[in-house]
């Protein structure tokens, strides 16, 4: 058993060694659902579609080029496997999406700012004494989460390799699968997340189910969403008149 464990422990290291962490290809899923339009009735107000026409819903086009990996240890509604988005070095807002002409940053605001120094191996090699150095090197890290929970860096990070996370049983997990670590305390949230009620599904309601990772929305060191000024609200017409 322990051999198996250590093998698991090594697996991510091996994977990482394979280069720039290439996104794993997702298991093939049907790209579209198809159906045949039933006979058009003689009701004059129904759409006049020729009987037998096949209509297909395509998969949302953005999904084709999305970097994602199958979630481990979790399944979505109906027991179906799903994928989680991958964080990719050097990219700001990998899920940015154009809606109209506005670009909405769909990944977490915090994620993109805080992970500028990713991957950690660009500075850290091997064991790092993380306890004291946080404030010096990572001014952007505000350790609210550890302060509240009494955790130390090593509670979550693998002490001898900071870019891996450490489960309570000592198993190492890549940052791309951080939900496995989050799930250890936040079980209810993770269950909802896997079911699609907590967190966000990316691109489409149909086709490949890709959902965002926990840290895409929550800064792991400071998980609460920040308060900010909202987008403009409605303008109610004043007394005595409609719109100008």
């Amino acid at each position: 058993m322990s051999v198996f464990r250590s093998g698991l422990l090594l697996l991510p290291l091996i994977l990482w060694g394979c280069g720039d962490n290439p996104p794993e290809t997702a298991p093939a899923q049907p790209a579209e659902i198809r159906g045949v339009v039933p006979e058009a009735g003689d009701d004059p107000v129904r759409p006049d579609i020729a009987p037998g026409t096949v209509h297909a819903i395509e998969e949302a086009p953005g999904l084709a080029s999305l970097a994602a990996d199958t979630a481990r240890g979790w399944t979505g509604p109906g027991g179906h496997p799903f994928e989680v988005t991958l964080r990719t070095p050097g990219r700001r807002g990998h899920l940015s999406n154009r809606i109209g002409m506005e670009t909405f940053d769909l990944t977490a605001r915090v994620t993109n700012r805080t992970l500028t120094q990713y991957p950690c191996t660009s500075c850290h090699e091997g064991l790092v004494d993380m306890a004291d150095r946080v404030a010096d090197a990572h001014r952007n890290i505000q350790p609210v989460h550890p302060a509240r929970t009494g955790a130390t860096c090593a509670t979550c990070h693998l002490p001898d390799s900071v870019q891996y996370l450490r489960l309570t049983d000592g198993q190492a997990v890549s940052m791309d699968h951080a939900y496995q670590l989050c799930a250890e305390c936040h079980q209810g949230e993770t269950r909802s997340w896997a079911a699609g009620v907590h967190g966000k599904r990316v691109e489409g309601w149909h086709g490949r189910r890709v959902i965002m990772n926990c840290a895409d929305c929550h800064d792991p060191h400071r998980p609460a969403l920040e308060s900010r000024i909202p987008y403009p609200g409605p303008v109610l017409p004043g007394p005595g008149g409609g719109p100008p």
Partner: peptide, 16 residues
């Protein structure tokens, strides 16, 4: 939505 995508409101929501 008929193209398989989420409505803009659902996609833009930062809180899920």
């Amino acid at each position: 939505s008929r193209k398989g995508k989420l409505p803009a409101c659902a996609e833009a929501c930062p809180t899920g």
